[in-house]
């Protein structure tokens, strides 16, 4: 199993623990990664808002790089994933548009045929590795722990761009994975809502209230921690949790794990190697619980 690996900006910037834990987990599961060092930012929806063709071109460039390796592409960010799937769908639907985009890639000697398969790590785990193979490698089933899944908008909507019509099981991948790892998945309404991060600099009050509401709901439903496949959600849920507590006038103390951190724990990888100490909300108590598993 081999992928062209697209880590995205945040895993190389503000969330190094995501990058670190991804490498650790893929290694443990025998997934080979070829990192696309020269790939640019997907635009995170911000660039496509300004200039759709520009954003699509940057993504076509990344897809072309994967194609040159002859590999499917794997990313580790719900936002990158959604943006890439949308760009891919636009280009695949309109060959003339794809050709125009290719003219922008030509000076670099790149060409995109429209065929690159884009998968988030979550989809790779559930569709390519498979639950059974993961289960076979679990050394620390997560026992009595309760995990609240938090998807991030772009890996769930618009559903028709993400193939949910053909694969409705994608709606429950996080829950299914959590349960496969031995933990209990907490049902709550916030799991597919917006974390508020995109408007943190535009309307901080709303942004923090959104994050605070979801964390509080997970906390009220008895979650021991939250888990997300989106580092941008993580920035708000984890990074801004202190401020979010004030926004919802409640004491929030909810560790938020990146998806590969959670898988890594169950695979028996050391918390330190997964960068759990780098999470903003203190994970010490959780790490102690993991140690007892």
């Amino acid at each position: 199993m081999k992928y062209a690996f697209y880590p995205g900006c945040v895993a190389k910037g503000g969330a190094p623990e995501l990058y670190q834990s991804t490498l650790a987990v893929t290694k443990a599961l025998g997934i080979e990664l070829v990192e696309l060092e020269g790939a640019a930012c997907t635009g995170a929806g911000v660039l496509s808002e300004r200039n759709p063709e520009l954003a699509d071109t940057l993504n076509a460039r990344t897809f072309a790089m994967a194609e040159r390796h002859g590999l499917p592409l794997m990313n580790i960010c719900s936002t990158c994933h959604g943006v890439m799937c949308q760009a891919n769908a636009r280009m695949q639907k309109d060959p003339a548009y794809l050709e125009r985009i290719n003219t922008h890639l030509a000076p670099e000697g790149l060409h995109y045929s429209g065929k690159t398969v884009v998968k988030h790590l979550l989809w790779v785990l559930m569709e390519d590795v498979g639950i059974d193979a993961i289960k076979a490698k679990i050394s620390k089933p997560l026992g009595d722990l309760k995990a609240a899944p938090f998807y991030g908008c772009y890996i769930v909507r618009p559903s028709w761009v993400l193939g949910y019509d053909e694969m409705p099981q994608r709606k429950r991948y996080l829950e299914d994975l959590i349960e496969a790892l031995g933990a209990e998945s907490v049902e709550y309404t916030g799991k597919d809502k917006c974390c508020g991060f995109p408007i943190l600099t535009m309307n901080r009050d709303n942004s923090l209230k959104m994050t605070g509401t979801h964390v509080l709901e997970a906390q009220d439903k008895g979650a021991d921690f939250m888990v997300t496949p989106c580092p941008l959600c993580h920035l708000n849920l984890d990074g801004s949790q202190v401020e979010a507590s004030d926004a919802v006038k409640a004491h929030l103390d909810m560790p938020v794990l990146h998806l590969p951190q959670l898988v890594g724990v169950a695979l028996g990888i050391e918390p330190k190697a997964l960068g759990l100490h780098k999470n903003m909300v203190n994970t010490r108590r959780l790490v102690e619980q993991f140690a007892k598993l």
Binding site: E49, C153, P158
Partner: peptide, 12 residues
């Protein structure tokens, strides 16, 4: 307009 988080819920 700047308060929208582009979460795609309305699109969905």
């Amino acid at each position: 307009i700047w308060d929208c988080t582009h979460c795609y819920y309305c699109v969905e």
